[in-house]
Nucleic acid binder design. Structure first.
Ligand SMILES: [Zn+2]
Ligand SMILES: [Zn+2]
Ligand SMILES: [Zn+2]
Ligand SMILES: [Zn+2]
Lengths: 161, 161
DNA sequence: GTGGCATTGTTATCTTATAACACTCACGAC
DNA sequence: GTCGTGAGTGTTATAAGATAACAATGCCAC
C-alpha cells in the first residue's frame, strides 16, 4: 500500500531534520512518531501507549508523554486541543520545500470532520493575517493561535444532508 | 465596587434570557455562573467546585459539570480548550443589543495573555470570514471554529520586552 | 575512572471528566 | 387524591489525561 512508502519518507524526513538540528530521534521517539503517522485520525496519548506496549512492554505514561513532548518541540507533530490528541505535522513531514527552520513553529489551522473524524492541517495566510490583525487591535503582541475548525468534510457533507 | 453591579446585571441578563427560552436558571446554576463571572481569569471546574463547596458542602464534580454543561448549552459561558477552563460570554451577558437567539452559538475568538492570564473574548468578522473561506476551500461545511490566540497583553508587553 | 548530561525506567499521584444509580419535587392525567 | 413522568440534584465510583519525583543506564569529555 502507498501508506508504507509515505510513512517511510516522513520518518526519513524527520530523521534528517533531527540530524540537522543536532537532536536525537531515538528509537523510542521514532516508534511513537511512526504510530502517530500510522493512525488515520488524531490519536490520544493512551491509545498510543497501548500500541506502544506491543513492542515495548515496559512503556508507561511518561514514556509516551516525553516522546510526544520532544516531537512537539521539534514541530514534527501537533496537538489538537479539542481532541486531546496528536497528529503529524504535514508541513514538516510531507515537506513542500519550505524552510526547515520554519517548521519549528509555523502558523497552522486544523479542519476536523465531526462525521468521520478525519483531520487536515492547513496553513491559510488569510486566516493568519486576520488573526494577527485582530490580536494587534486588541493590544496583544507575539500571538500564536490555536485554530481548530470543526465541520463536515466533503464526503460526510455529501452523505448526510 | 463597580464589579458588584456589573455582575448583578450580567446575572439578571442571564435570568431574562433563560425565561425567554423556557429553561431554568436554578439557584445552583446561578451560583456557578456567578462564580465564573467573579473569577478574574478563566476558571477550571475543580476550582469552581472548591468555591462552590463554601456555600454547598454537598457539591461534587457532577454538580459543577452539569451546571457548566447547561451554561455552555445556553451560550452563557464558553470553554477555553487550551486552559480547560471557563469564562462568561461577553456577548450574551454584557449585551451589545445583539439578537438574543444569536447568543446561543456565536462566532468568537479569545485573546489569552501568557503573562497575566487575562483573557478577552472578541468577535472579529474578518477572522470569521477568513475561516469560513478556508473551510469552504477545504470542502468543509457548517464550520464552527475554536480560535484561541495566545500572546502578551498591552500591560505585560510593555513590562517585559 | 569519574563526573556530567541525556535518555529511559519506575512508581505514585494529580487533574479533568463522566458513568451509573438513587432521591426529590413539581405538574398534569386520570 | 394518586399515579406517572420528567427535570434537577445527590452520591459513589471510575475513566481519561497528564505530571512529579527519583532511580538506573549509557555515552562522552576530561
Ligand atoms: Zn504543521
Ligand atoms: Zn468526514
Ligand atoms: Zn460569547
Ligand atoms: Zn497580561
Amino acid at each position: 500500500m502507498h501508506g508504507a512508502t509515505h510513512h517511510l519518507t516522513a520518518l526519513e524526513r524527520a530523521e534528517a531534520l533531527c540530524q540537522t538540528r543536532g537532536v536525537q530521534l531515538t528509537p523510542l521517539r521514532r516508534d511513537v512518531l511512526r504510530l502517530v503517522l500510522e493512525a488515520e485520525a488524531p490519536i490520544g496519548a493512551y491509545a498510543l501507549l497501548d500500541q506502544l506496549k506491543a513492542s515495548r512492554p515496559k512503556a508507561a505514561p511518561p514514556t509516551v508523554y516525553r516522546a510526544l513532548d520532544f516531537l512537539l518541540e521539534q514541530g514534527l507533530i501537533h496537538r489538537l486541543e479539542r481532541l486531546n490528541a496528536f497528529m503529524g505535522c504535514t508541513e514538516a513531514l510531507e515537506g513542500h520545500d519550505h524552510d526547515h527552520d520554519h517548521a519549528h513553529d509555523h502558523p497552522h489551522q486544523f479542519l476536523i470532520c465531526r462525521g468521520c473524524g478525519a483531520t487536515r492541517e492547513i496553513s491559510d495566510h488569510a486566516v493568519e493575517a486576520a488573526i494577527a490583525a485582530a490580536a494587534a487591535r486588541g493590544g496583544f503582541s507575539a500571538p500564536r493561535a490555536t485554530v481548530e475548525i470543526e465541520g463536515l468534510c466533503a464526503k460526510c457533507g455529501a452523505a448526510k444532508p
